[in-house]
Amino acid sequence: MSAYSALTAASYRASVRDKTTVFFTFAFPLIFLVVFGLIFSGKTVEASGRGYIDYIAPGVLSWGVGNAAVFGVAFTLMQWRRDDLLRLVRTTPTPLASVLASRYVIALVIGAVQAVLFIGVALLPVFGLRVDATWPLALPVLVCGITAFLAIGMVIGSRADTPEAVAAVANCVMVPMAFLSGSFYPLDAMPSWLQSVSKVLPLGYLNDGISKAVSGRADLASTAVACAGLAVFALVFGVIALKTFRWSNES
């Protein structure tokens, strides 16, 4: 078994071992979808004429996927470093790329499962999400989004030394971003200055790309813009993560 395969298997076992964490990874964002979906059931956004669920479902999905990517890799890197597992890995020929790639694959799988689950629930008659034929354009945006938020999680996991520190920093990043990027409330219904703020946040690009693809407003140009924006964030935070990565708490 290659080092990459062994690390991927270890990452998978670490991800599914704690049943409570697995449950809330998927259930916690769904709670927001159900609550907001019921609150705004049957209501439309005047600016576009579409239902609130057409914005809420992609927004909550984007936040849930980003949240899972950030917390998943941040907690794993912190735990492996605190338990000196990374220092042991460093004594082997295993490159850093294999360590990070193993977490990347797990994040992609989790994101795919979340997307199927979220859209499936939102399509229920009680919520009434409408999915248009352009939905496949959401797939590259989803992959780019997971990549960007994984890079953010790598930065957090490389610097935070305790679970409490990971949770505090990650929540300080993700919760305000969710509100400023339209995950819980349509950007079209927000003041213009808030809509401008979303353009400098990675979650804003993820929300916009997935929302347009699901609602039939996407084309190759808008998808390319969303992917390019997320790629920039992935590159910037990826470079920072590589510069700040620590194999142990002493280094």
Score class of each variant (00 low, 15 high):
Val239Pro: 02
Ile110Gly: 00
Ala160Trp: 02
Val35Arg: 07
Asp161Tyr: 08
Gly145Arg: 03
Tyr12Pro: 07
Gly120Ala: 07
Thr76Tyr: 13
Leu220Ala: 14
Ala9Gly: 14
Arg87Asn: 12
Ser211Lys: 09
Gly59Met: 10
Ile110Cys: 03
Ala101Leu: 10
Gly145Ala: 06
Ser102Asn: 08
Val45Arg: 14
Val166Asn: 05
Val200Leu: 13
Val173Asp: 04
Arg87Thr: 11
Leu30Thr: 12
Leu123Ile: 05
Val131Asn: 14
Cys172Ala: 13
Ala167Leu: 11
Leu129Val: 08
Gly42Arg: 13
Thr25Pro: 11
Gln114Leu: 10
Val116Lys: 03
Ala231Met: 02
Tyr104Ser: 00
Phe118Trp: 10
Lys212Trp: 06
Asn249Leu: 15
Ala241Gln: 05
Gly72Ile: 08
Gly157Ala: 07
Phe127Ile: 04
Val116Ile: 14
Val45Phe: 14
Ser2Gly: 13
Ser11Met: 08
Met1His: 05
Val131Ser: 07
Ile106Pro: 02
Asp208Glu: 15
Val175Gly: 07
Ser211Glu: 11
Ala122Asp: 04
Phe40Ser: 10
Thr162Pro: 09
Ala14Gln: 11
Ala221Met: 11
Ala221Gln: 12
Cys144Leu: 04
Asp54Cys: 04
Val65Asp: 02
Arg13Phe: 12
Arg130Cys: 03
Asp188Asn: 10
Ser2Thr: 11
Thr20Glu: 05
Arg159Gln: 13
Ala165Met: 13
Gly145Leu: 01
Phe24Ser: 08
Leu117Asp: 02
Val116Phe: 04
Gly59Leu: 15
Trp63Arg: 06
Ile119Val: 15
Gln79Cys: 05
Thr76Pro: 04
Leu100Lys: 00
Gly72Val: 04
Ala148Leu: 03
Leu33Asn: 08
Pro176Ala: 06
Asn171Trp: 05
Met174Cys: 14
Leu86Met: 11
Pro140Thr: 01
Leu142Lys: 04
Tyr185Ala: 07
Leu142His: 01
Val166Pro: 03
Arg82Cys: 07
Leu124Arg: 09
Ala228Gly: 13
Glu164Ala: 13
Pro186Lys: 08
Trp135Ile: 03
Gly157Ile: 07
Met154Gln: 06
Leu123Ser: 11
Asn67Val: 00
Leu7His: 08
Ser196His: 13
Leu203Val: 05
Val45His: 13
Thr8Val: 13
Phe233Thr: 00
Leu123Asp: 06
Ile110Phe: 03
Phe233Glu: 00
Leu235Phe: 10
Val113Gln: 02
Tyr104Val: 00
